[in-house]
Amino acid sequence: MLIGTLLVSSFVIYSALYLAPGNPIATLTGGRTPSPEAVRILEERYHLNDPFLVRYWDWLTGVLHGDFGVSIPLRQDVSTLIAERIGITLGLVVYAAIIILILGIGAGILAALRPGLIDSSVIVASTISAALPSFIAAIVLLLVFSVQLGWFPAFGPGEAGLDRIYHLTLPAIALALASLAIVSRVTRACVREELRREHVQTATSRGIPRHLVIRRHVLRNAAIPITTVAGLTIASLIALSAVVERAFALNGLGAYLIQAALSKDFAVVQGIALVLVVAFVVTNTVIDILYALLDPRVKLGERAS
């Protein structure tokens, strides 16, 4: 199933861009009319005359060996271009995921267990952040924390290490905010629901201390739906990171994908799109596996729906 989806996706990505209007020779020669001899050499070098399926097969086997082809406008290996940028995107998404998991689930649990002031403030905060699209959140964060307070840099990924984390903080928050709201609201609802379950009463009736009842029965059981929702939300960040990278001028995969789409650099678009789709599909598969591991009623391979 996973392999099938990935194969078909790769085919869709490759063929869509293959069928796109436009002539790579024109791109290569920068608009000048090349001699027939030059055209022949170029066609040979970039295998432009091979049949479609052969070219797809070459591309696919290349990708499996880590070779994503050559960017015609840049005359550079796409693999190198991707490798240079993947770290920033990965860092951004992981950073945002950590924020979502810790703050979102934490706030949701707290709100469910402590009705009253804490609960109400979590609801208000999540209602506000749920309404903030990432790129608008980015603008607001830039305005407040970079321009007015000067606490965080406005642009760029910084140097690797702590400086990178510092530079990625605002982008990660912008990316996480809306998902944070979804996850905390779902967590709150699930924990509430589980607290009311009969089996929780059974545990209480046996004199099990409350914190153990909460941990072993309430949170353990609520973890099943929470994992699914949090996982799906985090998976959706992979594509959304492109927007945030653009907002904060981070040269990650997403920002580069956008740039390549604008300049019609198809080899780069194909390569990065495939990487993002694979990441998205694999993340979703991991969520399915986690779901089956957490819930003994579900057998691996059955669809969690």
Binding site: T5, V12, A239, A242, A261, V277
Partner: peptide, 22 residues
């Protein structure tokens, strides 16, 4: 539908922009 699920909306839009122009 399952294959389409593999393409988040924004990614599909970027791909479409690359192919057909923004």
């Amino acid at each position: 539908m399952d294959v389409l699920f593999a393409f988040p909306g924004i990614l599909l839009a970027i791909l479409a922009a690359a192919v057909f122009g923004a």
